[in-house]
Design a protein around this nucleic acid. Structure first.
Lengths: 361, 361
DNA sequence: CTGAAAGCGCTTACAG
DNA sequence: CTGAAAGCGCTTACAG
C-alpha cells in the first residue's frame, strides 16, 4: 500500500498528498497520539496549553480524522442517517424531503458530518436499517419523519441507544426529541381566514389518519371549528389524487354542501379543484379552496391556491442542529418550528394578485 | 468495550446480539480468516469447496462485513456518493433529484450499498468533496449530474481514480462513462408533434447554455427545425421564472411572433403561460406550449401542459447499476436511456383529455 | 497530566 | 492452496 504501491503504479506525484494522521501531528509537536485524540474530542486529561497548541496545528494543517478509523474504534462516524419509508412515487412528488435534506446539510456540513440517505418500503424495514447502522457504528444519529400511530420507531431507537430527532412532532409518547409543528395554530390560521370571508360550512379532505400529523390536524379542526360557529365534514383519504377527487364529489353532493374545501396537501387540492369545476361551481365565489401544504403547484393553477407555507429548509437546519446537540450529549429540549404563513391567493380571494406578476397584471 | 462494557452498563441482555465477525466464521469452519476474506471478495487462492462452505455459512448467519474495518483496510466502503452543486431553492423545485435517488437506491440497497448525499454551492466545492471522500476511502464511486462546459469534474475523478458515472450524458470529452439521454431524438419528437399541428414559427425558451444538456438541446433544435421547414428563435435564460416571463414577452413582441413555445422545463413554462395569457392570446389555439420536462405541475395548469416525460426512477436504477459495475472493475460501456414519451395535453391539443379524469369529464 | 500498548475488524503481502 | 502476521488510523483503559 501507501508509498510503495503508489510508486509502483507510477501515480501522479512522488510526494503524493498523503493526508496527515494524528500521529503526524503528535510527532510534529512532540506529544503523544493520546494527547491529540484528547484535544480533538474535548476530553479532560491534558493541559490547556497543550490542547491549544494541538488545536492550532490541527487547524493550520487542515487535519480531519479518518472517519473509518474513528468508527472502527468506537468514536463517532461523523455521519447522520435519514431513512424515508415511502414508495418511490410518493417521495418524488414531495419537494418537502429534498428541501428538508438540503436544510439539514447546511448544519451538517458545517460540522463535517455526512448524510446517509435510504429509502425503504415501510417502518419495519426502517427499524432494520437502524439496527444495522447501529451495529456497524455507521451513523451517529438519525432523523425521523412521518410518525404514525403504534409507530415502532420511538421504542427501537431508544432500545438501540441511537440519538434521534423527530422532524415534525411532537411525539405523543414523549420519548422522542422533536422539532414540532403547531398544527393547532396553523389550522386556526386557515379557519380564521375562511370565516373572515364568510364561510361557515367546511369540507376537510384529510390524509391518512394513522399518520400522527394528520390525526393532529383533524383533532385541531374538529376543536377549532365549533368555536367559530363553523361546521366541518371530514373525509380521510390515502393522499392519492383519485381518493381526493372522490372525496370532493361526495362532499359536494351533500344537501348542505360546503362552501369551502380544505385539503391536506396540494396534490389532493388540484384533483379536488377539477371536480369542483366539473360540477360547474366557480372558485372562489361559490367554493373556496385551501391547501395545508404549499409548493409551486399551488401557483400553477388558475386561480392560484391559497396555502400554508413553511420554511422547510430552515426547518431542516434546526432539526439537524438538534440532532448534533443530541449526539454531542447535550440533550436539546424539543422545540416548536416557526408558524407557517398563509399565502392568500385567488382560490379564496378573488382580489389576490398572481404570484410573480406585477400588481398591474 | 464489548462484553465488559455492556455488562457494566447493564445493557438489554447478557447475550447481547453481537454481530459475527469474519473470525467467528473462520473458527466455526476451521479455516483461516484469510480464506473468509478471499471467499467474500471473490479472490483466487482457495478451493471451490472451501469457498462454497464459507459462502453458505455467511448466508446462513446473515453475516455482513463491518464497513468501517473494510474502508480502513483498503477494501470498499460499500457506499456511493451523490453530490449536487445547486442552491437549496433550485434543488427543492426539482422532483427529478429525489426520483433519481430513489431509483439509485433500488439498485444500491440490493447490493447493501449506502448512499451518501451532499449539497454544495458549486462544482469546485464538489471536487473538494470528492478529494476528501477519496482520501478517506469513504465512497467507492460517485454519480455526477449537470455536466457543464469546462467542467472540472471529469478530469478530477479521473485523476483521483474515483469510479464514476455521469447521469445524463454523454460527456463530450468522452472520459466519463454515462447513461446518456438522446436529446436529438427527444427534440425531434416535440418538433414533429408541433409541425403536425401546423406550427412553423417556434420560440424556444432555453435554460443556461453552459449546461451541457441545454447546449445539446439548442444544437438539436437548430438542426432539426430547418429540416422541417420550421424557423425557431432561441432565448437562453437562467431557468428562473422571471427570466422565463421576460423571454416570452420578448418573443411575442416580434413582428413574426411564434405560434408555438417550447420551454426547457415546467417552471419556465408556467411563468411563460401567464405572459401569453396577459397578452390576450389563447392556448392552444393561438399559441401552443410544450415543456421539455414533466411533473405534476404540468397537470395542474389549465390547459395542462404537453411535456416530455422520463422514467427518472428507472433511469436512476440503471445509473447505479453502471456505477456498481464500474466499481467492481467490469468497465460498463456507456448506454442510452430510453427515449422520453411525449405526454400530449391541452396546451398543444384542445381535444386532449385532462389527466386523471374520465374521458367524459 | 502523559505515554506505551492493546484493540476495533477487516485486507493483503508474505512465507509455507 | 493455506495460515500467521502486519497494518489501516483511530480511541481508550491502564500504568506511570
Amino acid at each position: 500500500m501507501g508509498r510503495t504501491g503508489a510508486d509502483k503504479a507510477g501515480e501522479p506525484s512522488a510526494r503524493a498528498e498523503r493526508r496527515p494522521r494524528a500521529r503526524d501531528i503528535a510527532e510534529l509537536l512532540g506529544v503523544s497520539e493520546t494527547a491529540v485524540s484528547f484535544a480533538l474530542n474535548g476530553r479532560a486529561g491534558i493541559s490547556d496549553e497543550t490542547r491549544d497548541r494541538i488545536l492550532r496545528t490541527v487547524a493550520e494543517m487542515g487535519y480531519t480524522p479518518n472517519y473509518a478509523a474513528r468508527a472502527l474504534s468506537g468514536g463517532g462516524a461523523s455521519t447522520v442517517g435519514f431513512v424515508v419509508a415511502r414508495s418511490p412515487e410518493d417521495v418524488g412528488s414531495e419537494a418537502f424531503f429534498l428541501q428538508l435534506m438540503s436544510g439539514m446539510q447546511a448544519a451538517l456540513s458545517a460540522s463535517d458530518y455526512g448524510l446517509l440517505f435510504q429509502l425503504v418500503p415501510d417502518v419495519d424495514a426502517e427499524v432494520a436499517v437502524y439496527r444495522r447502522w447501529k451495529a456497524e457504528n455507521r451513523v451517529d444519529g438519525v432523523v425521523l419523519v412521518d410518525l404514525r400511530e403504534d409507530d415502532p420507531r420511538p421504542a427501537a431507537v431508544a432500545e438501540l441507544g441511537l440519538p434521534s430527532v423527530l422532524a415534525g412532532g411532537p411525539d405523543p409518547s414523549g420519548r422522542l426529541v422533536s422539532v414540532a409543528i403547531d398544527d393547532v395554530a396553523a389550522v386556526e390560521l386557515v379557519l380564521d381566514h375562511l370565516v373572515d370571508r364568510g364561510h361557515h360550512r367546511l369540507g376537510y379532505v384529510a390524509g391518512e389518519p394513522h399518520l400522527a400529523h394528520v390525526a393532529r390536524r383533524i383533532a385541531a379542526i374538529e376543536r377549532a371549528a365549533p368555536q367559530r360557529g363553523v361546521t366541518v365534514s371530514i373525509v380521510p383519504t390515502d393522499f392519492s389524487a383519485v381518493a381526493g377527487a372522490r372525496a370532493v364529489a361526495e362532499l359536494m353532493s351533500r344537501p348542505q354542501a360546503p362552501t369551502a374545501l380544505v385539503f391536506d396537501n396540494e396534490v389532493l387540492a388540484i384533483s379536488g379543484i377539477d371536480v369542483v369545476r366539473a360540477l360547474g361551481r366557480a372558485i372562489p365565489s361559490e367554493v373556496a379552496v385551501v391547501s395545508l401544504e404549499d409548493s409551486l403547484i399551488c401557483t400553477a393553477t388558475r386561480p392560484q391556491v391559497t396555502a400554508l407555507h413553511r420554511e422547510t429548509h430552515e426547518f431542516g437546519r434546526v432539526v439537524a442542529e438538534h440532532l448534533l446537540a443530541e449526539i454531542a450529549g447535550h440533550g436539546s429540549p424539543s422545540e416548536q418550528a416557526p408558524l407557517p404563513r398563509l399565502m392568500v391567493r385567488g382560490s379564496t380571494d378573488s382580489a389576490a394578485t398572481i404570484d410573480g406578476e406585477p400588481a398591474a397584471g
